[in-house]
Design a protein around this nucleic acid. Structure first.
Lengths: 194, 194
DNA sequence: TATGTAAAAATGAACGTTCATTCTTTTTTT
DNA sequence: AAAAAAAGAATGAACGTTCATTTTTACATA
């Protein structure tokens, strides 16, 4: 196996272990030694790939966020009608959360705690721009309520993260039916009433 | 000053310090030594009032949650019409978040992390029962969408917590205008379309 | 009211553990 | 055989908690 490939494998194993352990225990309760063990690597090796623990979790966040938004916008075309575009993006996001639930849960945790540096957080937000642009067009066309991006996000996107965390605690099962219901609520909350 | 009163003062100071430090640093990044210092108390003294760190944060959570729901339901009467009842409760919750924002932010953090024991979490949920009963009546009367409590909560109540956390990071200011907008979105997302 | 005293409350220092990180050595690669 | 990568053991700091001691309180007696 080529040297480079082997390095990439190790790095990926570290990122995967970080996601899984942080999901189950939180940032401060996952020691580097456990991350190393789960990735089949010596603790010292982590420091060949990342500067320190904070850097490891920041980089993990940014990379997972990039994957997430790539998936969310993959089929989206900025010329689509606003409602269809929103539905498409929303459902891709929901798909991602069902399919890659470890990754999605990790993002939800990062977005709701002071675990991540502000710089990496900003870096992650940048990737959402197509959605913000769509909302802006929706407001101009009178299809979407004239609310700030933060409020639209709070009602249209973030509730899914809350539901995932609830599911993680075992109180609730997030299946396709629930997702369809959730979509209706999301759209109702931001569309201009007809 | 009477002995008992003095004890209550210390206990309150500890709870207040816990809220402030956990809000700013998170649970695992606030050492008992700092809580003690902020409360003007020796670290050892904490253990006269609480069993350990986990007990301190659990008790803080349950007490703040009780204050919060007391305030939320203070003016509510179970015989009110569903829509008026919901608006009243929602706006009381919003008021609380504006007036007691440290307390509210602490609850938001607890509700979105694995910081709190499941027992204390359940204890906190119990206090919400009047709202769940109202929703049940709303569903029966065809006023509120036939969705599970978790989904209703995710869209009608939790977004305010998300907005508070966003505000805490400095990206956004949650004022009365934003609250009115948020209420419209909350109600739109759960009411049956007319 | 003033004083002595036992219990309660509070303290600061100390303990044992855990953890992130580094150091030195060994293994692998080229 | 030199260089790069990886390993495991070691280090030092930080933390939750406990311990031995001091301070404060409550109250009985004079």
């Amino acid at each position: 196996m080529a040297k480079l490939q082997k390095s990439i494998d190790k790095r990926n194993a570290l990122i995967k272990a970080t996601i899984e352990l942080v999901n189950n225990n939180g940032f401060h309760a996952t020691p580097m030694s456990k991350i190393a063990k789960m990735a089949n690597v010596s603790p010292a090796t982590i420091y060949l790939y990342f500067e320190n623990k904070q850097d490891l979790v920041n980089k993990t966040y940014v990379e997972v966020k990039a994957e997430y938004t790539k998936y969310a916008f993959e089929k989206f075309d900025p010329n689509m009608p606003v409602e269809a575009g929103f539905e498409l993006i929303w459902k891709r996001i929901a798909d991602f959360k069902l399919k890659e639930c470890d990754n999605a849960l990790f993002l939800a945790q990062c977005d709701n705690t002071p675990m991540i540096d502000e710089d990496s957080r900003q870096e992650g937000i940048k990737h959402l721009q197509p959605l913000l642009d769509l909302w802006e067009r929706g407001r101009q066309e009178g299809i979407i309520k004239p609310l700030s991006d933060y409020i639209l996000y709070a009602y249209a996107i973030n509730p899914l993260s809350f539901l995932m965390m609830t599911e993680k605690r075992g109180a609730f099962k997030l299946d396709q039916t629930h997702l369809d219901e959730a979509y209706q609520s999301a759209w109702s909350s931001i569309k201009v009433c007809s």
